[in-house]
């Protein structure tokens, strides 16, 4: 059984790479795996502190405090996962030159496995979020199920970008260096830390097409408002995810043969 040029055994390869990347990432630091949990928590804390307590940001019609914090984290958590996935996937070929050069592998498995590493900050921030929600007296509704298709579309989109970046970083090393800044720019230009209504009217339509915003909405709205955002958004990001994933994979496979000698 094959799918998009992947065979069944590639799933195991991806899984093995995923485990390997996780082990490698936090080896050499004294606290090891504890960092993978501590990192997102620290980031969530600092953003919450700055936005909720220094800037005293609040949502239109609500008080600053717990509800804003919950709103913030429900958007920021998935973003941390996206940032982790993209960074990790972008460096997955170049950073694992030893494997690419010395092992006959299906190279595209590496960025895919690396993109999965976003699942760790995602799980951490969701757990944190659920604790806060319960403290706020929250109960889930059936709408939370919408998170699944939205999450999958987001994952497909991010993985596609990651596959593209992983090849590009091997040709242009500078990209890997520039990526963290690019991610910060995307974060602040996407209505994640502020509501879309705060965006200047002229740019609002553009912001509403931003796949990161839409995916964020499809996670945030079902959770907090017990409702669903417009369905066209989900369709749009699913199409975008499919196209990005497929296109990147195609481009990646064109240069794949050169990668072991280029890293």
């Amino acid at each position: 059984m094959t799918f998009a040029g992947f065979e069944r055994q590639d799933a195991r390869t991806i899984w093995n790479f995923f485990r390997m990347l996780l082990r490698d990432r936090f080896m050499g630091s004294r606290l090891g795996a504890a960092w993978s949990v501590a990192n997102p928590l620290l980031l969530l804390s600092i953003y919450t502190f700055v936005f909720a307590f220094i800037f005293k940001s609040r949502l239109p019609g609500s008080e600053p405090g717990l509800s804003y914090t919950i709103w913030l984290i429900s958007g920021l958590g998935p973003w941390l996962a996206v940032a982790e996935s993209l960074t990790s996937a972008a460096n997955s070929i170049h950073g694992n030159a030893g494997i690419v050069k010395n092992l006959a592998i299906k190279a595209e498995c590496l960025p895919i496995a690396a993109a999965m590493s976003g699942l760790i900050p995602l799980a951490v921030s969701f757990s944190f979020l659920v604790v806060l929600l319960i403290a706020d007296g929250w109960a889930p509704s059936w709408h939370v199920l919408a998170i699944v298709p939205a999450g999958l579309a987001l994952f497909g989109f991010v993985t596609g970008l990651g596959i593209a970046l992983s090849a590009l970083v091997t040709f242009f090393r500078d990209l890997g260096v520039a990526l963290p800044s690019v991610l910060i720019i995307i974060l602040f230009s996407t209505p994640i830390l502020y509501p879309v209504t705060a965006v200047p009217r002229a740019l609002q339509m553009l912001a509403e097409l931003n796949p990161f915003y839409i995916a964020g909405q499809w996670i945030r709205v079902p959770l907090l408002d017990h409702a669903l955002p417009p369905v066209w958004g989900l369709v749009w990001i699913s199409v975008l995810a499919g196209a990005t994933f497929w296109g990147s994979l195609l481009a990646f496979r064109r240069v794949k043969g050169y990668l072991p000698s280029a890293v």
Binding site: N16, R19, M20, M27, G98, I99, K101, N102, L103, A104
Partner: peptide
């Protein structure tokens, strides 16, 4: 089945312990 004995330790990460390196090796070679 092929055993490639070149650039030994190319998969390595010098922060790993010897045991962890071998574990990684076993993982890569399934």
């Amino acid at each position: 089945d092929v055993g490639a004995l070149f650039e030994l330790g190319g998969f390595g990460n010098r922060h790993l312990t010897g045991r962890a390196f071998v574990r990684k090796y076993f993982l890569l070679f399934e």
